[in-house]
């Protein structure tokens, strides 16, 4: 269904240490266009550092990240997100003082979107923002999209994060523990949205602790430990992998 290229998004031999602690240790893997890639691992295994390095928030000590054959290592975050690699943050911090839909004006005002949309007067973006919010599950005719972001419940804030990514018309969305802090029913209601994104051909790389839901979505899972990849494969294989079970999954499954 999707074109499988090896030079879509490639992580190559990334290393990063913080004061002697190796957060990433020569980690490398390709991301295939259109797939849902799950990244799991214990706390402190370097998952968030990986996200930060790919999205340009942290410079790696060595190694490369390539996107469509182009070197993006060391580019600033705004350049990387401008290429269509969007991300969510582990701790949700929306633009508190703005109404929910105005939060999306920020990505919509980026040059990536402005040049694609061919300008447009101030105010036009509001309509686009409301459409995006509806897409991620804000009830359009209710007051919710107009509420200040500070007043929204946690579940909506996670959706708002996704909408902020979608506003960039991304090729890749990297989520950093998107499901954490949500109840099972909240996660359940997010699942159809994630599946829709996958069907639209958006590549998803999900760093997750909620394995049950992740394994429903992901086609491939990478297990990290101390900055290294210790296992890789489809979810069924990961569940079956003895080493993984011992170090990580034991209690959960």
């Amino acid at each position: 269904m999707f074109e499988v290229t090896t030079d879509f998004l490639v992580v190559d031999e990334l290393s990063k240490s913080f004061g002697g602690v190796k957060a990433l240790d020569r980690l490398g893997f390709p991301v295939v266009q259109g797939e849902v890639l799950g990244i799991i691992g214990l706390n402190g295994s370097g998952k968030t550092t990986l996200v930060n390095v790919i999205t340009g928030f942290i410079r790696p000590d060595s190694g490369h990240v390539r996107f469509r054959g182009k070197e993006i290592t060391g580019l600033p975050p705004e350049k990387i997100s401008g290429l269509g690699i969007a991300r969510t943050f582990q701790t949700v911090r929306p633009f508190h003082h703005l109404p929910a839909f105005k939060n999306l004006i920020v990505p919509l005002y980026s040059s990536r979107i402005r040049s694609a949309a061919g300008g447009g007067r101030w105010g036009d973006r509001d309509a686009v923002a409301l459409d995006l919010l509806e897409e991620v599950g804000f009830e359009r005719d209710s007051a919710v999209p107009y509420k200040p972001a500070a007043a929204l419940p946690h579940g909506y804030l996670r959706r708002l994060e996704l909408a902020r990514c979608l506003a960039l018309r991304p090729e890749v969305i990297i989520t950093d523990e998107l499901f954490s802090g949500l109840s099972s029913s909240e996660v359940g209601s997010l699942m159809p949205l994630m599946e829709r994104l996958r069907e639209r051909g958006i590549t998803l790389m999900m760093v997750e602790h909620r394995l049950r839901e992740l394994f429903q979505l992901a086609g491939r899972v990478i297990v990290m430990e101390q900055g290294r990849k210790i296992a890789e494969g489809p979810p069924q294989a990961i569940v079956a992998d003895k080493a993984v079970r011992e170090t990580y999954l034991g209690a959960e499954l």
Partner: peptide
């Protein structure tokens, strides 16, 4: 200094 966040972009 060990204020790493100043050097990093985070």
């Amino acid at each position: 200094g060990r204020q790493k966040e100043l050097e990093e972009r985070v």
